[in-house]
């Protein structure tokens, strides 16, 4: 699985949906993922990709990791992986 499919799978799992119900333009809110669900999704991303995601639940928009849509999360993970390589 590529990064995109893995991220979609993590988010779908958190939202109790099948991956086909999650599109790149979906927002976490539209998928019914609340603040604790976001923290859990980020933990799953860190564990899956062995990266550290700079995320603070108090400032979700200010920590350099854009969680505004599935596409932005995929892009963020790709960037973190690239930085790691």
């Amino acid at each position: 699985m590529n990064i995109k499919d893995q991220v979609i799978s993590i988010i779908a799992d958190q939202a109790f949906l099948t991956p086909s119900d999650v599109s790149m333009s979906s927002t976490l809110d539209s998928l019914g993922i609340d603040s604790m669900g976001i923290v859990e999704s980020i933990f799953a991303i860190e564990e899956t990709f062995d990266v550290s995601v700079p995320f603070n639940a108090n400032q979700p928009d200010a920590t350099g990791f854009d969680i505004s849509s599935v596409a932005s999360i995929v892009a963020g993970v790709e960037r973190l992986r690239a930085e790691q390589a």
């Binding site: 995320f55 603070n56 639940a57 108090n58 400032q59």
Partner: peptide, 20 residues
């Protein structure tokens, strides 16, 4: 740390720029 609610720099209650 796991909860992602901790500040890395200071505790600033009620301040708009508080971060945990």
């Amino acid at each position: 740390e796991g909860l992602r609610v901790m500040s890395r720099d200071a505790c600033r209650p009620f301040s708009a720029n508080r971060n945990g």
